[in-house]
């Protein structure tokens, strides 16, 4: 489990920031990005996959959440 920050970059695309590794990666696929459900699998451009426990509503970004790494880059 690691703390990650989900945010928009300058182009308005979602990206994930991992403070521990100082890594900023664009998100290619975000499983649930809906008003009632937000989270799930997060696929990064580097090939890594993280999992965020789905939340009942879409939070205000940027937000720091706990995420589990399902697949390393």
């Amino acid at each position: 489990m690691a703390n990650v920050m989900i945010q928009y970059n300058e182009q308005g695309e979602l990206c994930l920031y991992l403070p521990k590794k100082d890594l900023e990666e664009a998100i290619t696929h975000f499983e649930f990005d809906e008003e009632q459900r937000w989270g799930g699998e997060v696929h990064l451009i580097s090939g890594a996959i993280y999992y965020i426990d789905p939340m009942p509503s879409r939070p205000k970004l940027p937000i720091t959440v706990r995420a589990k790494r399902l697949q390393a880059a």
Binding site: M5, Q7, P62, I63
Partner: peptide
């Protein structure tokens, strides 16, 4: 790092 913090 610090602007990210202030944004959140």
């Amino acid at each position: 790092y610090i602007v990210r913090y202030m944004e959140e």
